[in-house]
Amino acid sequence: MPPERGTGAHGADAHYRALESLYAAAPINQLFDSKLEITGSGTSRIRFMIDQQQFHAAGAAHGTIYFKMLDDAAFYAANTLVTDRFLLTTQFNLLFTRPLGEGPVVAEGRWINGQRRVLIADARLIDASGEEVARGTGTFMRSRIALATLPGYRAG
């Protein structure tokens, strides 16, 4: 899948690194031991750790961590295709298949469809044993917020 019109391979790579920087600069991400990697056009990966601070009363990861990481992975996969505007999540559906305990987890995001106003992307959570524990699909739309105006987005 090619980068959005108007960006060459170098421009796409600069955009990917700027998205990674944007993720790292977001205040919410200071609460999580996580790192975003843009792996190519329409794909992303977030590596993160679950610890007991993110558990619900029954001793497993709370659904908020599932949602946050699935939404972020899908969002950033979609935003690789949009170089000028920040996307907004307009809908997100989750499927929980297994509880998560402590340890490393990977969220893998993948663009599915759309490039103009609305984009669709999905993501899955993979636990340390390689099992899929959750999946989500989101709809994202272009906002009026220019990426270049956001603290942390540093292209080039």
Rank of each mutant, 00 (worst) to 15 (best):
F86C: 08
F86N: 07
F86V: 11
F86M: 14
L87M: 12
L87V: 10
L87T: 03
L87G: 01
L87A: 06
L88W: 15
L88M: 15
L88Y: 14
T89W: 12
T89L: 13
T89N: 11
T89E: 09
T89D: 09
T89H: 12
T89A: 15
T90W: 09
T90M: 12
T90E: 05
Q91F: 04
Q91T: 12
F92V: 01
F92T: 05
N93W: 06
N93C: 07
N93T: 12
N93G: 12
L94R: 04
L94I: 13
L94G: 09
L94M: 15
L94Q: 04
L95R: 14
F96I: 07
F96P: 02
F96D: 00
F96K: 08
T97V: 12
T97A: 13
T97Q: 15
T97S: 15
R98Y: 13
R98E: 08
P99M: 12
P99Q: 12
P99C: 09
L100I: 10
L100N: 00
L100K: 00
L100P: 00
G101Y: 00
G101L: 07
G101R: 02
G101C: 03
G101V: 03
G101F: 02
E102V: 07
E102C: 02
E102M: 03
E102T: 11
E102Q: 05
E102N: 02
G103K: 03
G103H: 05
P104C: 00
P104V: 00
V105D: 01
V105K: 00
V106T: 08
A107T: 01
A107D: 03
A107N: 02
A107Y: 00
A107M: 04
E108M: 04
E108R: 04
E108S: 05
E108H: 06
E108F: 03
G109A: 05
G109P: 02
G109I: 03
G109E: 02
G109L: 04
G109N: 04
G109R: 03
R110Y: 11
R110Q: 11
W111G: 03
W111I: 00
W111E: 04
W111M: 02
I112N: 08
I112M: 10
I112C: 08
N113M: 10
N113P: 07
N113T: 10
G114W: 04
G114Q: 10
G114N: 13
G114R: 05
G114I: 06
Q115C: 07
Q115G: 14
Q115R: 15
Q115I: 05
Q115P: 05
Q115H: 14
Q115Y: 14
R116G: 12
R116K: 14
R116C: 06
R117C: 06
R117T: 13
R117Q: 14
R117P: 05
R117F: 09
R117M: 13
V118G: 04
V118C: 07
V118M: 09
L119I: 11
L119T: 03
L119A: 04
